[in-house]
Design a protein around this nucleic acid. Sequence first.
DNA 1: CATTAATATTCCTTGACAAGAATATTCCGT
DNA 2: ACGGAATATTCTTGTCAAGGAATATTAATG
Lengths: 105, 105
Amino acid sequence: MSALAEPNRFQIVELLRDEPYTVGEIADQLRLRQPQVSKHLRVLSEAGLVEVQPIANKRIYKLRQQPFLQLDDWLESFQNVWDERFDRLDEYLEELKGKQKEHGE
Amino acid sequence: MSALAEPNRFQIVELLRDEPYTVGEIADQLRLRQPQVSKHLRVLSEAGLVEVQPIANKRIYKLRQQPFLQLDDWLESFQNVWDERFDRLDEYLEELKGKQKEHGE
DNA sequence: CATTAATATTCCTTGACAAGAATATTCCGT
DNA sequence: ACGGAATATTCTTGTCAAGGAATATTAATG
């Protein structure tokens, strides 16, 4: 997830969402210098967010879907909670007031 | 999203997924020092991931759902792509070979 | 085989940020 | 009003990661 935290990398991912791109194409579209793009792609690649397909001396990068599905799963583990707990906060407040009362006696 | 990149903050969020917690409780459960927890909560708060409810001299932190829904939306913008494009990579490769041919003539 | 295009890697510098330690603030009970 | 929790803030320091510039690598082409 820290791979997505960097703004330029985030942009790269959004760009690749549309279609696979070459390093040079990415650099052009995002107005970045080639070495930085290569470095960012390296990070994205090591994070498993992206995969490469070498063709001639070009390298085509595309998104992998696994990490996104994973993230989706993670988010679902929250969805459940919103529903289940209408607002557990109230419940918690009561609990606290109870504790205070006990302490007072 | 960079707020979630920090491991301790990520842990805090996962902890708060279960129920709201006090700063001290978070510090205890995650074996962190209170000041760092406060600082992390500040970041999470400014990122809109978390909200506070002061009660006595305690402060109860809970998750806000908006940013999570937002993230979910963002992820959906990808889902569409996976389906639509069986593999646009092939298409792209063809395009490249075409270009090479043109260049050769 | 020399050249050139496309990409990757290295080295260096700089800025951001997290932890630690100490201190400040706020609120309650007495 | 005072003492003590609970929490926040400040300051400093060390680390890490991103950008820039230069260079290395790989592959195609004549």
